[in-house]
């Protein structure tokens, strides 16, 4: 597994490098945006860890450039706690985000889950109507969702939400993206309320099984994610 670290702060870059080394990942370090785009093109990394506050160009621009030639998962690292930055990055094509200061444990967990997703994406057969994620199984043809083999009953909106999340398993989907895909309308307060309540209800139904606990993550102010097991 080859990882590109884009970070201008030396101590943080060293920390990430040491962490990756200890878990036997390969890595390169880019210290600015231009270098990052070059290395992403030449080394074709499997995962990109990208700091949003770069000295030369804006992190979101880097995401857009990289997305021009590569679909490698991008995990954004941001010192900004303003949610809007993360949402912009996610909508531009980033897959996940980490807020500074993050714990080493958290970084490794994100890398693991992204790696799992990579495997799933690479082994994905688009024709397969079956999505399996741990105890959760979605049969798109039968429009049936089972948990530990037991059928669970979802409302149409919940079903659509679940399949959308499953389709992008491992990726954080922003509120505005979900609202656009499900309700096809300009998001307003009542649609937001709708999304919150439907998501909560869906999560309750899935988390009935202790094995599926935490499968749907809520990122307050940002969006939701179905964790890939």
């Amino acid at each position: 597994m080859n990882i590109l670290i884009v970070e201008d702060d030396r101590s943080v870059a060293n920390l990430i490098a040491a962490t990756l080394r200890s878990s036997d990942y390969h890595y390169q370090i880019a210290q600015n945006g231009k270098e990052a785009i070059l290395q992403a093109a030449s080394h074709a990394p499997d995962i990109i860890l990208l700091d949003l506050g770069l000295p030369d160009i804006d992190g979101v621009e880097v995401i857009e450039s990289v997305r021009g030639f590569s679909q490698a998962p991008i995990i954004v690292i941001s010192a900004r706690s303003e949610d809007s930055d993360k949402i912009t990055a996610l909508d531009a094509g980033a897959d996940d985000y980490l807020t500074k200061p993050f714990s080493v444990e958290e970084l490794l967990a994100r890398l693991r889950s992204t790696a799992r997703r990579l495997q799933y994406v690479s082994s994905d057969e688009p024709a397969s109507p079956l999505f399996v994620n741990g105890v959760l199984q979605i049969d798109r043809d039968a429009q049936e969702v089972t948990l530990n083999g037991e059928i669970i009953h979802l409302t149409p909106v919940e079903y659509r939400l679940l399949t959308l999340l499953a389709q992008h398993a491992g990726k954080v989907l922003t509120h505005s993206y979900l609202m656009k895909e499900i309700w096809h309308c300009v998001p307003d307060e009542s649609v937001k309320a709708n999304l919150r309540v439907n998501m909560a209800s869906l999560r309750r139904k899935i988390e009935k099984s202790p094995d599926a606990r935490g499968m749907i993550q809520t990122h307050v102010g940002i969006g939701y994610r179905l964790l890939k097991y």
Partner: peptide
């Protein structure tokens, strides 16, 4: 804001030490 970057390195390295 500027606190966060050095704090990331400090807490992260401490955590690494704790683990290793």
């Amino acid at each position: 804001h500027d606190f966060r970057t050095p704090l990331t390195a400090i807490s992260g390295n401490a955590e690494s030490l704790l683990r290793s």
